[in-house]
Amino acid sequence: MRMRPTLSWTPTDDVLPGTTDLKQVTEALGGGRVLVLSGAGISTESGIPDYRGEGGSLSRHTPMTYQDFTAGTRARRRYWARSHLGWRTFGRARPNAGHQAVAAFGRHGLLSGVITQNVDGLHQAAGSEDVVDLHGSLSRVVCLSCGAFSPRRELAQRLEEANAGFDPVAAGVNPDGDADLNDEQVEDFKVLPCTACGGVLKPDVVFFGESVPPPRVELCHDLVRTSASLLVLGSSLTVMSGLRFVRQAARAGKPVLIVNRDPTRGDRHAVTRVALPLGSALTAVADRLGVPLDGQAEPAR
């Protein structure tokens, strides 16, 4: 799968009309073995913007591609300066009612798993266990030379020390943790190498133009196979990385249910699309099922 930084799908006659009826979502969760697939829309209520929704960041921001990142030092300087500033915002983000509801459904044995396209760690911070980070996590860093992994917080501390006084004003922060800064604001930023071998460091996330690791994809296929239904939360399903699991579930005759305000590329495969804010919708479902949202929310970092 190749992720692309452009919106390659627009709504057609294949979309479902949005509904406010939560009955089918409630029944599916009540039956158990529901696989959750979440996208950027579930984190908007935590202050992290969506890519494609109303005011989505793709209208003003082109995500870094793997090819650009590995091509030269200038692109890496721009990425790390912007990402370092964005990391501060991500570190302050807390799970919202949507994340807490998913965690509560898991604690009560209603879920078969959680796959997230997000890199913010908010599902785990809300208490969800065994989450598959389809596109990786901003909380880890990998060296492209020696393959060593390290915590992002350690690199953040090193970057703080190497770039004392770096505190530009950003126009916004994007779902990939990239803050909106111009070239002048990042030109003096110091990029640091791997402490083990001096190689190039990269966040352990799947950039646009990069493939999701095959073992991770197969794990997700296994989760679809063992689930009774698939519940999509806050994803436009524009890129194939998530859409393929929707198609797999539909081919197997498993109900696909979507909670997303806007039409999605997976609507043709779904039995319903609930066009409500995720936090209030999932809280209402939890209330109907008698599932208390009693988890302790921790910072994403």
Results as ranks from 00 to 15, higher is better:
D188E: 15
L181R: 08
V212Q: 03
K190G: 03
E187C: 08
F189Q: 07
F208K: 03
V217S: 11
E184L: 14
G177R: 01
A196H: 12
R216L: 03
E218N: 08
D204Q: 13
E218S: 10
E187D: 08
N182E: 10
N182I: 06
G198W: 03
F208D: 06
G177K: 00
A196V: 15
V217A: 15
F189G: 06
D204K: 05
V191G: 10
V191L: 13
D222Q: 15
G209C: 11
E218H: 12
L219M: 11
D176Y: 00
G177T: 02
V206D: 00
D222N: 10
A179S: 13
D180G: 04
Q185W: 00
V206P: 01
A179R: 08
L230P: 12
P175W: 01
E218K: 11
R216A: 04
N182H: 07
E218G: 03
L219V: 10
G177V: 05
L201Y: 02
L201N: 04
E218P: 02
G199H: 03
N174C: 14
E184Q: 13
V206Y: 01
E184H: 05
D180W: 13
C197D: 15
V186W: 02
D204V: 00
L223W: 08
T195Y: 00
V200P: 03
S227M: 05
H221G: 04
C220N: 02
T226P: 00
P215N: 09
T195Q: 14
D183C: 01
N174M: 10
V224I: 12
D222V: 13
E184M: 07
F207K: 04
D188F: 11
S227P: 08
K190S: 14
P203M: 00
S229Q: 10
P215G: 09
P213G: 12
G199C: 06
D176W: 02
F207P: 02
G198P: 07
L231G: 10
E210V: 02
L192Q: 14
D176M: 00
G209N: 12
L231N: 12
L192P: 07
N174S: 13
P213I: 11
F208R: 00
L230T: 08
D178M: 04
P175Q: 02
E187F: 03
P213M: 14
D180I: 12
S211I: 03
G198M: 06
L192I: 07
E187H: 07
K202F: 11
G177I: 06
F189H: 09
C220D: 01
D178S: 01
V212K: 01
L231A: 10
P203D: 00
V186L: 13
V206G: 00
L192V: 13
L223M: 15
D176L: 00
L201A: 08
E187M: 05
D188T: 14
N174F: 10
V191H: 11
T226K: 14
D188C: 05
P215L: 05
D222G: 13
V224M: 07
D178N: 04
D188A: 14
C194N: 11
D178W: 06
G199T: 06
E187Q: 15
